[in-house]
């Protein structure tokens, strides 16, 4: 139980286990030498707050991938909800009610994905592709394609620059979400059942695990985390922007896969997904500092996922042998 997942020790497995750690260290070392602005406290602080959105989504994506599903709608939903929260405040709804509103909405959207996937027996990538189209469309329709500025200073400060016990609030939310997810996955019956579902869904069903209910719950939790991600994103940008997070979905999937998750379910780790998310965040940050064309990030990330996926499959074969 102390181990998060099975460990077998083929070469590919070793490389894969090391990838998030070594990759992160290598990137940090490289950027520290390559840029004068990288290795300092202020940049790290910025990195931490900037990556909060990604980390929250990656945590949710870990659960989704663990049960062998996928959510392609998260980026679009974050954009939509940041628009909604901005508009809610613009309409005079107090910030706390606005936040509550989008949290409810996001859980509903997540649960919708889950119900259609599980009850409708439709592959989740199709369902969430549909949700993605709807959310993207809705975000642009609501705003007329213009960003909605947020004027509420309490909201802007609280979820971006304010600190509690010296810790910036976004970081605090991330820490809470991380600890919560970790506990949930490792130390609750629900979490252990998710491993069972992802490993062998039929065996789990025959052992009396409520497979459908658990899967829907996973999508709803994903929604909850996406809701908080939207709050942080809106606060950081100071507005609700309909096209704000084009790469978020892919970044989150990349983070989870780099973190060693199996695309066929049953294998995923909260800690390693966090490392994966940090790796992506450092990459984003460092490339900006080095004035590398932002767009080549896509290629780099694509190749990194490719590497992680190939390693994962080779490692799986090593186990099978």
């Amino acid at each position: 139980m102390a181990q998060e997942t099975a460990r077998t020790h083929g070469l590919a497995q070793w490389v894969r286990d090391l990838l998030p750690y070594a990759g992160l260290v290598l990137l940090i070392v490289y950027f520290s030498f390559a840029s004068d602005f990288f290795f300092n406290l202020r940049n790290f602080e910025r990195l931490a707050t900037d990556s909060a959105t990604l980390i929250l989504v990656a945590l949710g994506m870990t659960l989704v991938i663990l049960v062998a599903e996928i959510d392609l709608s998260v980026g679009a939903v974050v954009a939509l909800l940041s628009v909604v929260v901005a508009q809610a405040m613009a309409a005079g709804i107090p910030w706390h009610l606005s936040v509550l509103l989008i949290l409810c909405l996001s859980v509903l959207i997540g649960a919708f994905n889950g119900v259609i996937t599980v009850i409708g027996q439709i592959p989740s990538f199709i369902v969430t592709l549909g949700t993605m189209a709807i959310a993207t469309g809705a975000a642009f329709v609501f705003t007329g394609s213009i960003s909605v500025p947020i004027a509420d200073d309490t909201f802007l400060d609280l979820f971006y620059s304010d600190t509690v016990w010296g810790i910036p609030v976004p970081l605090l939310i991330v820490i809470i979400a991380f600890a919560g997810s970790l506990l949930q996955l490792q130390r609750t019956a629900f979490g252990r059942e998710l491993f069972a579902i992802g490993t062998n869904i039929e065996a789990a069903r025959l052992s009396g695990v409520a497979v459908k209910r658990n899967k829907i719950a996973v999508f709803a939790i994903m929604g909850f985390l996406v809701g908080w991600a939207s709050v942080l994103s809106a606060s950081r940008l100071g507005s609700g922007a309909p096209g704000s997070s084009p790469a978020l979905t892919l970044d989150a999937i990349a983070a989870v896969i780099i973190g060693g998750a199996s695309l066929f379910g049953g294998k995923a780790s909260i800690l390693r997904a966090l490392l994966g998310a940090l790796l992506i965040a450092v990459l984003n940050n460092g490339m900006v500092l080095l004035n590398i064309n932002v767009d080549s990030q896509y290629i780099v990330k694509g190749l990194i996922i490719l590497l992680a996926v190939v390693l994962e499959r080779i490692a799986a074969r090593e186990v099978a042998r």
Binding site: P123, L250, Y298, G302, V309
Partner: peptide
Amino acid sequence: VAVPSFIATLVSFFIAQGLALTLTT
């Protein structure tokens, strides 16, 4: 590599999109 097609093509999507953006700056 026995990758599910939605992931394999997502990877290509990533790389192709990045290549297009990079080439056009």
